[in-house]
């Protein structure tokens, strides 16, 4: 059987809100390492990878590796019933066809359990090779969200260019064009407010803003976001989940016809 108890239940609620519009059904893989998920969006352009390490849970028991197929929209409906301060426990039996979500209020005066049917999902696990990136930009997550939202009112695609000068986000549409440049800025009070540019080589890649905006739904998970880019690899947009792991989005670049 498996049983995970997450004191900061709101993390799981935030993860679901971040991915449920991108991915419909997914297998959650449970092992002694942690709770993870890898899934592509329906058009096979983007891939989501989630890892919540076992050490981040207050209690984590997983007797044997288990793959639980879930409809993310249904899971989100259930997790929306948990209060933001609730402790969430996930339970399942080996070979069973249901998963139980238990919500406890912080004062322990309200305890709810919700059972959800599991599904058989045939999904291909893809191997994600470790890569060296030409450029990595770390910036405040809210700033990145604002940029993607602003640019999508003007164009459909964004060109992200990293040079010594900084990182430039550009778009073009029927009404005109826009360029937003963020320079490296490490002289801030809090490290999460910094913009840090690690450039080995300049890089310039084109992406669909529709996907970028979808990824920024993960903004409540983390104060900062990192963008890892190489000219021959998908973009990695990573939100670290404090003390537990990460939520990563991989997006294939658009190429010139």
């Amino acid at each position: 059987m498996l049983e995970f108890r997450l004191v900061q239940g709101s993390l799981l609620k935030k993860v679901m809100e971040a991915i449920k519009d991108l991915v419909t059904d997914a297998n959650f893989e449970c092992s002694s390492t942690g709770f993870s998920l890898q899934a592509m969006d329906s058009s096979h352009v983007a891939l989501v990878a989630l890892l919540l390490r076992s050490e981040g849970f207050e209690h984590y028991r997983c007797d044997r590796n288990l793959s639980m197929g879930m409809n993310l929209n249904n899971m989100s409906k259930m997790l929306k019933c948990a209060g933001n301060d609730d402790i969430i426990t996930i339970k399942a039996d080996d070979g069973g066809d249901i998963v139980t979500f238990m919500f406890e209020s912080p004062s322990q005066d309200k305890i709810s359990d919700f059972e959800m049917k599991l599904m058989d999902i045939s999904s291909e696990q893809l191997g994600i090779p470790e890569s060296e990136y030409q450029s990595i930009v770390r910036m405040p997550a809210a700033e990145f969200q604002r940029i993607c939202k602003d640019l999508s009112s003007i164009g459909d695609t964004v060109i992200i260019s990293v040079t010594k000068e900084g990182v430039k986000f550009s778009t073009r549409g029927d009404i005109g064009s826009a360029n937003i440049v963020c320079r490296q800025n490490t002289s801030v009070d809090k490290p999460e407010e910094a913009t840090v540019i690690e450039m080995k080589e300049p890089v310039s890649l084109t992406f669909a803003l529709r996907y970028m905006n979808s990824f920024t739904k993960a903004t409540p998970l983390s104060n900062s976001v990192s963008l890892s880019m190489s000219s021959d690899l998908p973009l990695v947009v990573e939100y670290k989940i404090a003390d537990m792991g990460y939520l990563r989005f991989y997006l294939a670049p658009k190429i010139e016809d």
Binding site: V45, L47, T157, A208, A252, K254
Partner: peptide, 14 residues
């Protein structure tokens, strides 16, 4: 014009 590439071609199958 740009066309979208599929993500799976960058990763290892199986």
């Amino acid at each position: 014009h740009h066309s979208q590439t599929l993500i799976s071609r960058f990763f290892i199958r199986g």
